[in-house]
Design a protein around this nucleic acid. Structure first.
Lengths: 203, 203
DNA sequence: CCATCCTGTGAATCATGGTTCACTTCTTCA
DNA sequence: TGAAGAAGTGAACCATGATTCACAGGATGG
């Protein structure tokens, strides 16, 4: 036995993997998935295409992982603001909506890529997971609202999904036109969200 | 000069074209765009692939046309109900929402294909047109509502887009699971829509 | 009836872009 | 130092599915 992986080589390996994943994310953030071929990623990471395949079993796996990570970051932000307690359900949803919008508008190309750009099936399934993630955050807030008597009972799953869809669709236009300075847009969507949630009529 | 197109041959040509377009629509309605290769369409129309290309310059053109026609049908239905006058803006929107949902749920595969299934760019641009179409119908109703004093002034474009997105997202789940008997779902979405539109507070 | 033009045919072709793999380079340790 | 395993390379390869095109089969009208 004349070779064994050591800490240094292990670190180097992980670093290379990270560099590739980072390059892939950069590529998507800059030019969307349309621009993100394996060759382009490899070039950006300063490695050969074959090297990409030393670290990821396929392009689909690479981008699924990249999407998942970026998605998790977004989700964490929204989770943070929707779960802050000591506030009502509508307020929490509104805060989530606002965070969602601001994040998307801050990085329009990546925002568009995550929300709407055509992607291959493996990535699409990550996108569905992301949407479910957002939806579940809203569901949690809504159900708390129903529990506490703040909101009228309703189908939280559907309402939460509708909110997620509303934000996506309302943002796609501006995002694809790179109109990212829209304070008014955010306000409109927050308002929309607050309206959509029926306050309990205390008879 | 020994040949000139006559009425009969012209009719035959149009018929063939229609048969191909019909086959393409059937294929999409039954198996979605994923199943709709040129070969599959040709088989279904009982012609050779080459014949498809006699009538359509490319697959993209064929499916763009097929999508456009199906989209127009849907749009006409929603237009009909949202433009019926003698009713308030919220009522008109609610009627549009209901029609939209029922139509989609009645043909879930086609509904899904029109709303969410991945398609090539030419078809995607028809889908954007369809979405804009729905949005504009809602915009019209909303602006009438503002004019008449029924609704608080607001950014109708954004609100209407949000409504369209809300419906799409809320329906995608059920549609892809073929859960089409959902009276409750329609009711929830109509309610959601009505809530979202702010009634004018007459001080 | 035949010259001409059109429609139908489907196997061959092509374009795209992901994936492989024989080879080189580097690292480890006896 | 050299044997052995791992990582890096990139041109060749391959899969998919749209598109073409040379040829066959029908109309049309002089």
């Amino acid at each position: 036995m004349a070779y064994r992986a050591t800490e240094k080589t292990e670190a180097r390996k992980i670093a290379a993997r990270e560099r590739i994943a980072g390059a892939a994310l950069d590529q998507v953030s800059e030019g969307g998935y349309a621009s993100a071929g394996v060759q382009a990623v490899a070039d950006r990471a300063d490695v050969a295409v074959g090297t990409v395949y030393r670290h990821f079993p396929s392009k689909a796996d690479l981008f699924a992982e990249v999407f998942r990570r970026a998605a998790q970051r977004e989700l964490d932000v929204v989770k943070e603001v929707t779960e802050a307690d000591g506030r009502g359900a509508r307020e929490r949803c509104a805060a989530g909506v606002e965070a969602f919008c601001r994040r998307a508008l801050a990085g329009p190309v990546l925002g568009y890529a995550q929300i709407a750009e055509p992607v291959d099936p493996a990535v699409e399934s990550e996108r569905l997971r992301l949407r479910r993630g957002y939806r579940d955050l809203f569901v949690a807030a809504l159900e708390d609202g129903v529990q506490s008597g703040e909101l009228e009972p309703h189908d939280s799953q559907t309402v939460a999904a509708a909110l997620v869809g509303a934000l996506g669709e309302a943002l796609v236009g501006p995002l694809s036109r790179r109109e990212c300075q829209s304070e008014a847009l955010v306000a409109t969507l927050v308002q929309f969200c607050e309206n959509a949630l029926t306050k309990r009529v205390t008879a």
